[in-house]
Design a protein around this nucleic acid. Structure first.
Lengths: 330, 330
DNA sequence: TTGTACGCGTTATCAT
DNA sequence: ATGATAACGCGTACAA
């Protein structure tokens, strides 16, 4: 491993001068500067980031916390963030929590130990009170998560609005028996609370009461969708439409429904969420709520970089619009 | 930032003792050990990895190089690797090359600067001659890539075999006009060369000549699949089956084919590659070649960790079996 | 069993 | 404009 000292020796200067060249200090004689640059080239020297980090505040790494990278929503988010970061010379550390609280905290420690200069959290497992203290060690940006009393920037889409227009669309298609899948619980304060509100509001406006039997909680995957369809088939009073909560769940639903002989959307209408690639390729094409994933990631990355460069940035909430994409499943 | 010294002060011992507790040295009096542990707990102390790295050879980070994380094949691979790593206390750095040679090299530099202790490459953009020198700085494992003269471990599936059985399956279904999509080029040495060989071998055995018009190169996405279908529709001599090269391409193909009024598999048979979740949810269900992605990732992770712990590990090639999954599209 | 002192590679401070 | 030196947090040879 060649160090700054090797370069200094070869160039015949002190290591201080070498350091200055590396960091583009203004007042260096062109001669020495050239000698140093040549020596660096010749030795194939690269500064040791561990040493730089230990010494001062070198910023080269951002961390992105996601629950599951195999969820396309998050892989697209990471993709967008990584691109923004790379363009500014940052490396991206991917942190998968698998929805494990402890794992999440262990990743937050990256901030304290200066392994990461800033963190983008795309999901939150612990209470905010657990996480908030870490903001002392570096900027944290929330992307796709929503906290009531935010002292950090947040980039989000209006989940309430997205769900509302989705359910309303079903109602306008004539449906009154609308099932609802959520990745969280159907509570007023927990995960997906905004979506829950949107669902209830849309029903309420149409004078439709909520049927608890048609509320399916903790659903995420294609497999979950298939399983939900089984449940629905066994009901004596079956819904005529399903708000699936994600395109994956919708895919599972659709698959099981067709296998059971149901015609879509005639016997059962299905609406997804996200507008992932899969939505387009399903048959019939999936009506869904498009989330501007790439824009969210880009924005989150840009905000974090801005905070790293000018720590004075105040918290702000950026709300990006959702869009109803009508295809053939409704 | 709380350091080892803070802990030492609070526990009333020297920092050496604290260090020894952290690193599980054998000969420490239980009293002091407890005091130290308590102090660490109380202060919420976490060792600074930059310092540890700088000091000695601490291994805590592995890097995974992928072309595109939004490709489910790679996100599942990363997922598996991350889990193996985390279980052994390693962090996973995701490096997305976007198929950019320079970017790939910049990520390899992580190894030289000890930012990463080892690297798993799931794709290779540069010539191996460019990459090989970096093995000097730390272990490199190839996962899903194949080099002829390997001096590093490789985990792979037999792409030749996978393609061969896929195409043979189509032939057994009575097809003789079989189109072929590849993510690389249709050359003897480049990317996907093994697949190309498998395709040619299967045709050859059946006495079917290769029709260059039906060879589609550089295809990856659902959009590519749709585009390919357009091309096929415009041909006066149309193939009756397509080897798609990936489940995404197959999805695009299927979608466009159905839209054009073709029945699958009667008018056009389609076979994918990977057996991703999407394969199951397509209508009709997609016949495909299953790659043991999770097992590949797990194995790659384990090998890399083994090399980090016992640098004496010799290079070896692990070949995992592929499997033909027959659904309704063929 | 425990502690002192040095060095890992870099940058900031203070001289010159 | 340039250089000597301390300091970042940690691990370890050496001493006690």
């Amino acid at each position: 491993m060649t160090t700054i000292i090797d370069v200094a020796r070869l160039a015949g200067v002190s290591k201080t001068t070498v350091s200055r060249v590396i960091n583009n200090y203004p007042h260096i004689s062109p001669d020495k500067k050239n000698q140093v640059l040549q020596a660096m080239e010749q030795l194939g020297f690269t500064p040791n980031p561990s040493a730089r980090r230990l010494r001062g505040q070198l910023a080269t790494t951002i961390a992105v916390v996601v629950p599951k990278i195999v969820n396309p929503f998050f892989s697209y988010l990471v993709d967008a963030i990584e691109q923004v970061g790379y363009r500014s010379g940052y490396q991206t550390l991917i942190c998968q929590t698998n929805e494990d609280k402890e794992k999440e905290l262990s990743y937050l420690n990256l901030l304290r130990t200066k392994q990461a200069d800033g963190i983008i959290m795309t999901s939150i497992e612990n209470d905010w009170a657990q996480i908030e203290p870490y903001t002392e060690f570096g900027p944290i940006v929330l992307c796709n998560e929503y906290i009531n009393k935010p002292d950090v920037p947040m980039i989000r889409v209006d989940q309430y609005q997205g769900t509302y227009i989705g359910v309303k669309h079903l109602i306008e298609r004539g449906h009154r028996k609308i099932a609802y899948c959520t990745g969280g619980l159907f509570t007023e304060f927990g995960k997906d609370k905004d979506r829950n509100r949107g669902y209830q509001k849309a029903l309420e406006e149409a004078g439709i009461p909520v049927n608890p039997a048609w509320i399916l909680v903790d659903k995420h995957t294609i497999g979950d969708g298939k399983q939900v369809m089984q449940l629905l088939m066994e009901m004596k009073d079956r819904p005529t439409a399903v708000f699936a909560g994600s395109d994956e769940i919708a895919g599972g639903l659709m698959m099981a429904a067709k296998r059971a002989g149901l015609r879509i959307p005639d016997d059962l209408a299905i609406i997804g969420f996200d507008d992932q690639p899969i939505a387009e390729v399903l048959d019939p094409g999936l009506t869904t709520i498009r989330q501007p994933i790439a824009r969210m990631g880009k924005k989150a990355g840009e905000i974090l970089l801005a905070m790293l460069n000018e720590p004075s940035q105040g918290p702000a909430v950026y709300e990006l619009p959702v869009e109803l994409i009508i295809r053939e499943s409704t």
